[in-house]
């Protein structure tokens, strides 16, 4: 799943390690989410949204919704 995590992180001048520390996960987790290799669970997605002061939809792009808007 594509996401804007790298952009949001860069806007705040946070490294992957900084974000990992704030989320209490490993740096590898942040990297895997950023590169789209791993989709976070709903609780972690909510934590990310809270941390960046935005919504989940503003961070993660629902490609299925773009391809099939009626579903």
């Amino acid at each position: 799943m594509k996401n804007r995590l790298r952009v949001l992180r860069a806007e705040r001048n946070w490294s992957q390690a900084d974000l990992a520390q704030k989320l209490e996960v490993s740096r590898q987790s942040v990297n895997a989410i950023e590169t789209g290799k791993f989709d976070p669970s709903l609780p972690l997605a909510f934590r990310l949204a809270r941390l960046f002061g935005t919504t989940i939809e503003a961070i993660f792009l629902d490609e299925d919704a773009i391809d099939h808007p009626t579903l």
Binding site: E24, V25, S26, Q28, S29, A32, I33, P40, S41
Partner: peptide, 8 residues
């Protein structure tokens, strides 16, 4: 393990 990616 609290890190879900590591668990995965």
């Amino acid at each position: 393990e609290t890190d879900e990616y590591m668990r995965h």
